[in-house]
Design a protein around this nucleic acid. Structure first.
Length: 610
DNA sequence: GTAGGGTTAG
């Protein structure tokens, strides 16, 4: 007989999760459904159960309502979750907790805090679940001060007996940068009872703070290690690109699981060792969706299109059902390396499977089309979207700007505002880029100054970079230099490089020399800078200085890596560099170039040789 | 509460 577990007076446990939607007739059956409700991710089914709950007058039951809120939150139906909450006259702490979490899950962090304040105002006392949920709302949006405030509150009310509470505090501190990590360490030191999660959170925090050595020390000191401890340490080495140490640890590791193997595969793909990655991938005792995703994206990111497509087909044939993460990952990898063929392949299988595209998936698709040169397709996908978010607008604006259709990009900027979206710092990168490509210098400068004035966005160094590029390409080098000299932050190598790029277009020799002094000081071995400088001198006919720079390059022992072009032809990628003769059809290719050259000159093509 | 893939810029 199945052993019954202790449970609430109302809901018995259930062994299997909710599956196909079926009409439940008895109250007993409904109770069974409700007990698993918080795991339900099927929206139509959820709505059906909601209706039955309502009919049975259980919607304000103190046990049912929090589960409903959690379920609707999981299905990204925050509106409905809030409505469910509002149906309850006297919400208890569980219901408040689930609404706080619902807001965080649906990216409404500030509303999570508002809910917490409402809760206090209404005299409902927080419990040991409230704080971990509230701390989650701090991640990514709030500062250290916020976590400190919650910490203080927790001390006042005293929930530290539950190990979940200090553990989640350690984690939150660690996600607030290096200072946060030291606060976490202080807390960790004074904790009386630490469990393996406390140790793991601390090791993970040290790794995130870049303190790999100290993390290893703590890992070695741990009284007990579980599979998460090992995997955390493994990932630390992987993220630091130290594959030797990672492999060493991996070999020693007891009880490796699918995450351990995937971490290693991911590490080797990122290090560019696709052979080793594939070797481990093939040896994996168990593969899941994430492992496949890592290997396929790894191939795609590095331009191994045949292998990527082949493995993608294999994954589909193995019967695994793709999720958002898989599709977004692969599309992002295609976008990065311009693998349109795989991107198209992914899309066609999405269509064939009737995959319901979330906004994030569609955004990734738009970005893939745009970065692979199909701006029209990107625009068509964007226009067909039923629900757009800020990322959708930013992606299409950036895509259009990159391809020189700055006019459409700027038009969409206005439409975006009409649709009620507030531009953010990324939007302005796209807008400034659009103006640069169109040569709208004054208009771009106007947008730059409107950022802080009209939108309360303080320009960052990237925005200054865009402004310098805008002025520089527009030939207003003096103003560009003034921006560099007067901007509120120290100019970095990218800023000076941008200015140098402008010099390359307009040949002001003196300025170029000035810029270069800064650049060489910052990054003396950067061959690209030196070779660009030598080109500027060459264009000005200053051969003595050309020789000086060349000599400097030789002395430092740098050589500018050749630029390459890649072509994707019927799913096969061909790579070319200048004076390259490694391609099997090299002779034919050069013959064709000779044939094409005079024809290209006719409409006015003049290759730039400097 | 701790571990592997995940959309926009740089």
């Amino acid at each position: 007989m199945t052993k019954l577990q202790p449970h609430s007076s109302f809901i018995p446990p259930m062994s299997s999760p909710i599956r196909a939607p079926t009409w439940v007739s008895t109250r007993r059956q409904l109770e069974l459904k409700v007990s698993e409700l918080h795991k339900c991710s099927n929206l139509p089914h959820l709505k059906q159960i909601h209706a039955q709950i309502f009919k049975a007058n259980l919607h304000d039951d103190p046990f049912v309502a929090p589960k409903l809120v959690s379920a609707f939150s999981l299905c990204h139906q925050l509106r409905i979750a809030i409505n469910v909450f509002n149906q309850v006259q006297f919400p208890n702490v569980h219901l408040y907790n689930s609404l706080i979490r619902a807001h965080t899950q649906n990216s409404q962090q500030s509303q999570a805090f508002t809910t917490f304040l409402d809760m206090l105002k209404n005299g409902v006392f927080p419990d040991n679940f409230t704080y971990p949920f509230l701390l989650k709302a701090c991640i990514g949006t709030c500062s250290l001060e916020m976590v400190q405030m919650i910490h203080t509150h927790m001390i006042k009310l005293g929930f530290f007996a539950d190990i979940f509470v200090p553990n989640s505090l350690i984690d939150s501190y660690c996600k607030c940068g290096v200072i946060g990590v030291s606060s976490a360490r202080k807390l960790f030191m004074v904790m009386e009872d630490r469990d393996v999660v406390s140790w793991n959170s601390m090791v993970s925090g040290l790794i995130k703070g870049g303190l790999l050595e100290e993390a290893r020390q703590m890992f070695d000191e741990m009284p007990e290690r579980d599979v998460v401890s090992w995997n955390t340490m493994l990932d630390g080495y992987v993220k630091a690109r130290d594959m030797n140490s990672a492999f060493h640890l991996f070999e020693k590791m007891p009880g490796r699981n699918v995450v351990s193997w995937s971490t290693m595969v991911s590490g080797y793909t990122k290090a560019g060792d696709l052979d080793m990655a594939r070797l481990l991938f093939d040896k994996m005792p168990v593969k899941n969706l994430v492992s496949w995703t890592i290997m396929i994206s790894g191939y795609a990111e590095k331009g191994f299109i045949k292998e990527a497509i082949c493995l993608y087909n294999e994954m589909e044939n193995s019967g695994l059902e793709l999720d958002d993460g898989t599709i977004i990952s692969i599309l992002a990898a295609c976008a990065e390396s311009g693998l349109l063929a795989l991107g198209k392949r992914v899309r066609s299988s999405m269509v064939a499977a009737g995959f319901r595209c979330s906004t994030a998936v569609t955004n990734a698709l738009i970005d893939m089309y745009a970065k692979c040169g199909c701006v029209e397709k990107a625009l068509a996908v964007f226009q067909g979207m039923s629900e757009r978010d800020l990322v959708s607008w930013n992606t299409i604006i950036q895509g259009l700007a990159m391809h020189g259709d700055g006019l459409t990009a700027l038009k969409l900027f206005y439409r975006m505002k009409q649709a009620g979206f507030e531009p953010d710092k990324i939007t302005f990168i796209g807008i400034l880029c659009a103006c640069t490509h169109m040569g709208y210098v004054d208009r771009g400068v106007g947008y730059f100054y409107s950022m802080e004035r009209d939108y309360y966005i303080v320009p960052q160094i990237e925005h200054y970079g865009c402004l310098i590029d805008l002025l520089g390409r527009g030939g207003r080098l003096k103003e560009a230099l003034e921006v560099v000299q007067n901007m509120p932050m120290e100019p970095n190598a990218v800023i000076w490089g941008t200015l140098l790029g402008a010099c390359r277009l307009h040949y002001p020799e003196e300025l170029a020399q000035e810029v270069l002094k800064h650049l060489v000081k910052m990054n003396p071995a950067e061959a690209g800078n030196l070779s660009m400088l030598s080109n500027i001198f060459a264009a000005a006919g200053d051969w003595a200085n050309v020789a000086n720079v060349r000599r400097a390059m030789k002395n430092i022992g740098v050589q500018k890596p050749s630029g390459t072009s890649t072509l994707d032809l019927d799913g096969e990628v061909h790579e070319f560099t200048v004076f390259d003769s490694s391609h099997p059809n090299s002779e034919d290719i050069y013959q064709m170039i000779h044939l094409l050259r005079p024809q290209l000159k006719k409409p006015g093509y003049a290759p730039r040789l400097t």
